[in-house]
Design a protein around this nucleic acid. Structure first.
Lengths: 154, 154
DNA sequence: TATTGTTATACTCTATAACTATA
DNA sequence: TATAGTTATAGAGTATAACAATA
């Protein structure tokens, strides 16, 4: 998606569908921010997703991670090739299954991810600029409930 | 976009970045909904965007609309070819510039768009399911302010 | 026989360039 | 000479299939 709709400075013109317009605008902005921030990483946004999973989540096989991130296992190979070439993650043998590789972050990978996450937190601040502190907290809380519900039913 | 991150049922693991996780989850769900709903239209989401603009906005040239929607003018050609073949929009000559074509929706196009927009409003309801009426209103208001700010600075 | 990871191939989508008709 | 729209070509990105190693 990555997709745009009524994204100019006018008031949205779809009757009764302000949410759709707002979501689309916000989605576009957020995607652009994330894309811009993770540009320095190999494979951009996807490199960030893999690195983040390697740091913050228990080790998984390539296939398991590919399925979770919704990307093909064949592109996962190239993705990890680039990340390992950059010294950010490693393929370690899985002691319980000699076919599988566990993905773990290197120290350099952890440091790099910290930088990216700092930038993302700054970007969040920019995205919520028009709200004051109370409003931000309220928005975060509501959004979080929606997201949790969505993630559960998925 | 269209991109995924920590989209499982766990609590988000990026420290202090709940917003990023929530946004990503919500945007993914919303993109999927819009994509699913506009699947019946020629060219899917993009077909919907063009049809929506043709119905709700003053007529524009192909180029002007392409720039506004952020798509290439060469793909706009194919897009409109398909939409006109389906009888949803028409290319009309611009009386002030014989090079340009104005895009206007047909009656069938307007009817089709109404159907899509009905489905979108239903989808909004699903997306906001975990919130009660007051919370929905609050969320819409906050989101709308964010989006307006974002659209203005774009 | 099924599965993980890799490689090779084919396909789709998008961007670039070239062409026409107007301005 | 520049612009709106179209067409043709090339490139990037993606999916499909086939393969080796292991279960």
């Amino acid at each position: 998606m990555t997709d745009r709709e009524h994204a100019d400075s006018q008031t949205p013109s779809i009757q009764g569908s302000v949410l759709g317009w707002s979501l689309t605008v916000l989605l576009r902005e957020w995607s652009a921010l994330v894309e811009d921030i993770s540009r320095e990483l190999p494979q951009g946004v996807r490199g960030y997703q893999v690195l983040s999973a390697a740091v913050h989540e228990p080790p998984r096989s390539q296939l398991a991670l590919a399925q979770r991130l919704g990307i093909d296992r064949t592109v996962m190979t190239y993705l990890i090739d680039d990340l390992t070439a950059a010294g950010l993650i490693e393929r370690q043998p899985d002691p319980t299954d000699r076919r599988a590789r566990r993905l773990v972050a290197t120290d350099a990978g952890r440091a790099e991810l910290r930088k990216v996450e700092r930038a993302l937190r700054r970007a969040e601040g920019e995205a919520l600029a028009p709200l004051d502190d109370d409003e931000r907290a309220a928005f975060r809380a509501l959004l979080c409930r929606i997201a949790r519900h969505s993630a559960q039913s998925a």
